[in-house]
Design a protein around this nucleic acid. Structure first.
Lengths: 336, 336
DNA sequence: GTCATGTAATGAAACGTGTCAAGCTGTTCA
DNA sequence: TGAACAGCTTGACACGTTTCATTACATGAC
């Protein structure tokens, strides 16, 4: 019932024109103090809340951006979200968070929905190929920034980490800790972030004559999967077991650690070295602190918003690919 | 530029009336196959995307609900969010996720914003008192479900866990493991969820003549804070140190574990027993698996959406408080 | 051949707000 | 005293869609 309250009713009660109420809401300084008070009182009395739909329809834009994450329960994406929200709030933008839950379908549904919402811009973190769709959406008038994956197209802005380098750093470190049989646990291989990390690890391995890299492909990068893989690895005879494992992200790594140590009684790092990726907070907080490749978190989200703002303002003239350099954070899990 | 494409342009290109295009979008079966195809072709050609603002303005409602979480980087809330999204999707509802980041200001801003959006309903997880504001918003026409906190008002629906019982189970278990000096780490005390847990723990302690409960009040329930508190506890002489710690949530507990074991060289559970709350995935995955009070996760979000739907349909006739019973999951951290 | 019935398509009205050109009031300056 | 001016206020219109009362047309029964 209260939803029947519009700017008209407020105007009637305050005895002013609707235009004046609109002014009061959007440019309060253009309204005389006297009427300002009358209007405010009317608004309070009626419980008026502006109808966003009508407002947006009229002005055409929406003061909101959207951030689509593939997996909000991965703290890495949650932390990025915090950076995004914080930076966006500073610009007076609201953020719609969406969790595609690694489902391409859900991802598409959200893209469509936010387009329909006439969002100012999109921040999209995705596994899998998505550039074509983003290009299409961009042509239709909604700019976007690809997050976590370097864009191939020149006119697609992106904020990412040099994953090849990250993979290299991780594997190099393991080799320096005198590991030779190294296993990479991750997948799917079609995900650019993953294949880049493998690429980098391979390069490090090639630099050492007797080092080998085994790739253990998994469909999902979660704690549970890590634990399963650990069980299989533990079953092998010691000489066939990798001396070190490089996990595609920290969830996998922590799952592996749990599986190796708790389920199978192996020791990390004494029996197996372990390095993760992303450096989420839980990596450091682990009882056996986890060595990890640190990608920036909040800064990541902040940079993405800033780039998006630039693109919105300059209309793709300022599209560019920002690439952060990863950093290896060495902790107990690789210090034999 | 493409944003200039409306239903009218589509109608013109397809040589039909705008009303027909609208029908095509909303009730495709009411349109003849022939025109259906013409319209579809026009839509594709023009890259038409319906303007949600206009659509909502006209129809009045919005097919979306909102979920406001206090801290999305706490996996507990992230998991609830997944349940919410999944259940809502089944009903054809979209979910706006919002992260208030424990800031009352941000919380208010989001409440206002979602009201303006004419969202169908609100799911609000909050620390601190919020019922008054929700009551106000409800009177204005937007129903809500309080998540994680039992509502005091009869007409405020809520989905929560029996925190008093949770606290009782945790402390009781510690006492059964022959701990006597027990410390509760958590805060602020004004948060109902927290004070209830303390209440329950107190009850358990009262049942055992020589048990004592020390409350260590902290402002924030994070990994970092847990680590700080651990350092202080470790500094004490062994006879003044608690034999067991009950942490207000798993983040605190895992931070405490890290601080005690890694930073200070104490042993869990040999030197100190440790129990957490929420049972997030990382609790089980810890190298020293953490005993924790399990509140439902996805089910929680699902129940919240279902209750909200009921309230939307029946208009507060069906408001009720759903209270889940917590369950103690015993793991290595309390098995001396 | 007429009438009743039903299905498709039409076009105008309405949703609630923001904007803008025009009106109004009171002030300043010549 | 009158004109110019500045600043508040006004009210009509436009935004893009959905809805609904009508019209157009086809089918079948009599």
């Amino acid at each position: 019932m209260a939803s029947r309250v519009g700017i008209r009713e407020v105007a009637a009660l305050a005895q002013v024109a609707q235009g004046t109420v609109s002014h009061f809401i959007n440019h309060p300084d253009k309204v005389s103090p006297e009427k300002r008070e009358r209007i405010q009182r009317a608004i309070d009395e009626l419980g008026f809340v502006r109808n966003d739909a009508a407002s947006q329809l009229r002005r055409g834009s929406s003061a909101t951006i959207a951030y689509i994450a593939p997996d909000i329960s991965n703290p890495f994406f949650a932390t990025i979200a915090e950076g995004v929200e914080q930076r966006a709030a500073a610009d007076g933008l609201s953020v719609f968070l969406a969790n595609s839950n690694r489902s391409r379908e859900r991802e598409d549904a959200y893209l469509e929905m936010f387009q329909a919402h006439r969002v100012r811009g999109l921040l999209v973190a995705s596994h899998g190929p998505i550039e074509d769709r983003l290009a299409h959406i961009r042509r239709l008038g909604t700019p976007s920034v690809l997050v976590g994956q370097r864009a191939l197209a020149i006119d697609q802005p992106s904020v990412s980490v040099d994953d090849e380098m990250g993979g290299y750093l991780a594997a190099k470190h393991l080799i320096e800790q005198s590991a030779r049989r190294i296993a990479f646990v991750g997948g799917p291989l079609g995900v650019p972030q993953i294949s880049d990390r493998i690429e980098g690890a391979s390069r490090a391995v090639r630099e050492c004559v007797d080092a080998t890299l085994e790739v253990i492909n998994v469909g999902n990068r979660t704690l549970a999967v890590g634990r399963e893989v650990a069980a299989e690895i533990a079953k092998r005879s010691p000489e066939r077991r990798p001396e070190a494992i490089f996990a595609a992200n920290d969830l996998l790594a922590l799952g592996l650690m749990h599986g190796l140590v708790v389920d199978s009684g192996l020791r990390v790092p004494a029996d197996i070295l372990l390095v993760g990726y992303d450096d989420i907070e839980f990596a450091e907080a682990s009882v056996i602190p986890l060595t990890s490749v640190r990608a920036p978190h909040e800064e990541f989200g902040i940079a993405a918003v800033e780039l998006l703002q630039a693109v919105i303002a300059n209309d793709t003239k300022s599209a560019k690919q920002i690439v952060f350099q990863p950093k290896l954070i060495v902790r107990a899990s690789t210090l034999a």
